[in-house]
Amino acid sequence: MTRDEFLQALRRELSPLSPEERDAAVNYYEEFLADAEDEGVAIEKLGSPQLIAQRILQENGVAVPVQTPERAPAAKTPYYKSVWFWLCVVLTLPVTLPVALGLAAAAVAIVAGLGITALALIVAFYAAMAALTVAGVFLCVWSFPCLHLSIPLFVMLLGFGVCMVGLGVLTGLGTVSACVGLSRCIRNARKKKREARAAKAALKKGGDPA
């Protein structure tokens, strides 16, 4: 291991520390190696940067996972890059594939069912609104011929008519605002999802160089 490799590995292992602490340790060892009579021998005597870093991390109260230096790089490779993961995927395919297909079909059916129900409800409410309003108007108009029969009858019919028109208008307003709210809800959920995905991507991009 050369001097630069040693110092670089040390800096990497000390990444959980604050920049100040990390620089202090790396500077110390940089100077240490410069003071040594034989740099190569000194690096060999110091041992692995991982172990040196572990001591410093413990001293700074950072929890250090117990791992041998040989195993450290293996733990860092993500699971989807390992041969074993893909072997498992392929071997369990006969079982996982039908289960996955079944679950997907069920999910589609539920979503479709909910969609159709919502649509039907919306249509029903609009129909109710139309019926109430039309019936109300009819009652109002029909109450006038009753005027010469009896005034109480006329007032009752007119009242009913106005009530029905009012109910119809309220139903319509309620349905419209419910529709608007629902669509806004869906749009917000989609937007949040997109933002979360973007944030995740940015995090991944930012985390890589460190």
Partner: peptide, 27 residues
């Protein structure tokens, strides 16, 4: 004195590892 010399004296006298000094110095 400086880190490298302190380390050499400690290693010679007590047999501690070469990397034992830094945490002590820092503390």
């Amino acid at each position: 004195t400086y880190g490298y010399l302190i380390t050499q004296r400690l290693v010679a006298a007590t047999g501690v590892s070469e990397s034992a000094l830094y945490p002590v110095l820092r503390r």
